[in-house]
Amino acid sequence: MAWPVGTIKVPLAGWQVTDWSLPGPGIWGLAGPNGSGKSQFFSQLVAWGNKPQGLRVGLVMQNPRLQLTEATVWDQMTWPFQRGWSGRMKPAVATRAEQILAEWHLENYRTSAPWELSGGMQRRLALASMEILAPEVYLLDEPLEGLDLEHRVLLDTKLDQWSKTASVLVSSHVWQWLLVHTEWGWWCDQGLTWGRMGEIWYQHGLSPELPLEALWRRLLDKGAPVTPEAWANLERARNEVICICQNSHQIPSIP
């Protein structure tokens, strides 16, 4: 099921898209050069009047600090659910908040002020405080930034979990990560172009950073039968190449 959004204007970057719609549950990529308007596009998507009626959209901004508005980590997690002046809430919300904080390894920081946390912890708190709101559409603007390796793995698990019931739109400059997690998405440069992320990488990815990426670009340039996104996954890349070599009998034995 897709969510029709309609026309979105991105004024500072100077472009707009018409008849735009967001696909249903899954992880969708958004890639583009610096300054192409990705962050503004996200911001426009949550603007009043742009999102479809009834659609529950949640944005985690590039700079998480502006989203951490409360005095403690606990309040940050629960304030939208608090009612009345006393701030009462359902016990189920508190249980869920505790569970999510523990999953993001923030359970020991319940009473800490969000602005005292390190950059990576602030990112985790921004993601956790969005998770508890359970949106139908997650907009994640450069979610990897500031996360260490352990928590990047955690984010990967969360993405898989969220994408079963929600649409997750992620932007990132890290191609390898984008290609592993997203199959389809948009290239953002003076507008949005829909396509397979592998194709988008091949067309717009510029100079390769990793040797395997360089090899893949070379093979694609030569017309070899490899899928563009396969390089991002070592196992898949190896299998494709072994398959090619087997077909042309170039390798006597396959390890």
Binding site: S43, V46, A47, W48, R56, V57, G58, L59, M61, L66, Q67, L68, T69, E70, A71, W79, P80, F81, Q82, R83, G84, S129, L133, A134, P135
Partner: peptide
Amino acid sequence: KDQAMRQSLAGTHRFRPLSFLRP
């Protein structure tokens, strides 16, 4: 914008006119 988004997601409409001050 962020606070309106969160309240809309949680389905609450608590009146917090000065909530932007602390952040």
